[in-house]
């Protein structure tokens, strides 16, 4: 009996710890959700005490002054940065995965370094450059910075996908009368697409959520994270938590729906 109990525990304790750690990851999200329904103004103490429930903030998520503008600005910046990083990064990963050339090691280092550099260093050094060059800080300096730090992640993601691609598939396409361009469009690109999509999602979320680099290069432009930061100093409007919760729920649902074909395929 005791032996059985020990086996039962031995089989499950790792999973149990894992689930507790997951819980730790989710607790703050639960708090964000709870705070989004709290009936209190932005200057009330930021706690869950004396909790009163209200739908009011959800009815008007952009109700706090400036929050809507900041949100859409961040979306625009993230979209542009993603587009730029995905195009530049995909080209680079094709060069690295498909060709041998002089300067390959140097290129790999140049791609690795931004990932090994703290954001505060990247942000401050870009600021130093922009100031020295007399560039007006604002929307475009943010986009430039975001493309820069997303680029490396795109290259790593797409390159991994390319490396896992069977070269025989392209040979088969050429053997079946597809010229280089057709081979690329009909075979290579569709097969690399999941990698490119993953890279784009990663870029978008990195850019949308970036505070540190943006903080150095935004001038007077206020992105959504900048707005949250400012609010944390002056008083947090509940709408921030509404948007935070909504983003979480929507993303979670989108990813879950994306998983449905996978689940079905496994059954088939």
């Amino acid at each position: 009996m005791l032996h059985r109990l020990r086996r039962w525990v031995a089989d499950r304790w790792v999973m149990a710890i894992g689930l507790i750690v997951l819980l730790y990851l989710f607790v703050p999200i639960g708090v964000v959700a709870a705070m989004s329904f709290r009936d209190a103004g932005r200057n009330a103490p930021y706690t869950l005490e004396n909790y009163k429930f209200t739908w009011a903030h959800w009815a008007d998520p952009f109700g706090a002054a400036g929050i809507g503008h900041a949100f859409w600005l961040s979306i625009a910046i993230a979209a542009l940065a993603t587009l730029g990083a995905v195009i530049l990064g995909t080209l680079m990963s094709f060069a690295l995965a498909r060709h041998s050339f002089r300067g390959r090691a140097a290129t790999n280092t140049l791609i690795f370094l931004p990932m090994a550099t703290p954001e505060i260093v990247m942000g401050s050094s870009l600021l130093a450059l922009f100031v020295a060059a007399g560039v007006q800080l604002g929307f475009w300096t943010i986009v430039i910075a975001h493309v820069m730090f997303c680029l490396s992640f795109v290259v790593v993601t797409v390159k991994a996908r390319l490396a896992g691609l069977d070269p025989r598939l392209q040979e088969a396409a050429m053997d079946l009368y597809a010229n280089e361009v057709q081979t690329f469009l009909r075979v290579t690109l569709p097969l690399v697409m999941p990698g490119i999509v993953a890279a784009a999602l990663l870029s978008f979320s990195l850019s949308f959520d970036d505070f540190i680099v943006t903080n150095f290069n935004s001038g007077s432009v206020v992105t959504f994270p900048m707005f949250v930061w400012g609010a944390s100093q002056r008083g947090i409007p509940p709408q921030i938590n509404v948007i935070g919760t909504a983003m979480f729920v929507i993303s979670f649902l989108v990813v879950l729906i994306g998983q449905i074909p996978n689940l079905r395929r496994r059954k088939a």
């Binding site: 964000v32 994270p225 921030i240 993303s251």
Partner: peptide, 20 residues
């Protein structure tokens, strides 16, 4: 998905939740 789920919402907002 649950591991990356926290990324679905802004990290500043999540850090503020720790204040609570």
């Amino acid at each position: 998905i649950c591991v990356i789920a926290p990324f679905f919402t802004s990290f500043l907002i999540r850090t503020l939740a720790w204040k609570v």
